[in-house]
Amino acid sequence: MSERISSPRPRAWVSALLVAAVVAIFALSMALAPRPDDESVEAFGGTDAAATEALAAQGVEPWFEPIFEPGSGEIESGLFALQAAAGAGVLGFALGNLRGRRAERDRQSLAD
């Protein structure tokens, strides 16, 4: 008798390859990124800061001041992450609710 060795489903291989590709992309981008101690590299900044600097150079003044300004960049990043998590939670709740309504409607139509 010959035993047949079962292999994982092809779907699992595709998933594993996709995860490996994503990890490789991030690893390469971090390895090839310029180091912050290099004098020619500026600190990573967003487009908001670049636009604000460009407008200030042209003499444009802001119309209003922010209501709340975080004490540090870490607090600002944390608040942004909290905002993103809250938005993802609301979106997940809405999609789950819509799916539940659809499942209930399908179950009701089968019962009739």
Rank of each mutant, 00 (worst) to 15 (best):
residue 67 I to T: 08
residue 42 E to C: 03
residue 26 F to L: 05
residue 60 V to G: 04
residue 30 M to R: 12
residue 39 E to P: 07
residue 61 E to S: 14
residue 36 P to F: 00
residue 43 A to R: 13
residue 56 A to V: 11
residue 72 S to T: 01
residue 39 E to G: 07
residue 41 V to C: 02
residue 21 A to T: 08
residue 75 I to E: 10
residue 27 A to R: 06
residue 31 A to H: 01
residue 63 W to Y: 15
residue 53 E to L: 09
residue 33 A to G: 03
residue 22 V to N: 02
residue 62 P to V: 14
residue 62 P to N: 09
residue 34 P to R: 07
residue 63 W to S: 12
residue 72 S to N: 05
residue 22 V to T: 05
residue 50 A to E: 09
residue 24 A to H: 09
residue 40 S to G: 10
residue 23 V to T: 11
residue 17 L to I: 12
residue 27 A to I: 09
residue 17 L to A: 06
residue 70 P to I: 06
residue 23 V to M: 04
residue 47 T to R: 03
residue 48 D to Q: 06
residue 74 E to C: 09
residue 79 L to W: 14
residue 32 L to Q: 08
residue 27 A to H: 08
residue 26 F to D: 05
residue 79 L to D: 05
residue 71 G to V: 01
residue 57 A to V: 03
residue 54 A to R: 13
residue 31 A to L: 14
residue 37 D to A: 02
residue 61 E to N: 13
residue 67 I to R: 08
residue 34 P to V: 11
residue 66 P to A: 09
residue 38 D to S: 15
residue 22 V to F: 11
residue 75 I to D: 08
residue 28 L to D: 09
residue 71 G to D: 13
residue 19 V to M: 05
residue 51 A to H: 12
residue 29 S to Q: 15
residue 75 I to L: 03
residue 70 P to D: 01
residue 73 G to Y: 08
residue 72 S to H: 02
residue 51 A to K: 13
residue 26 F to W: 10
residue 71 G to H: 00
residue 58 Q to S: 12
residue 19 V to C: 01
residue 53 E to I: 15
residue 76 E to C: 10
residue 68 F to P: 00
residue 16 A to E: 15
residue 25 I to M: 06
residue 73 G to Q: 10
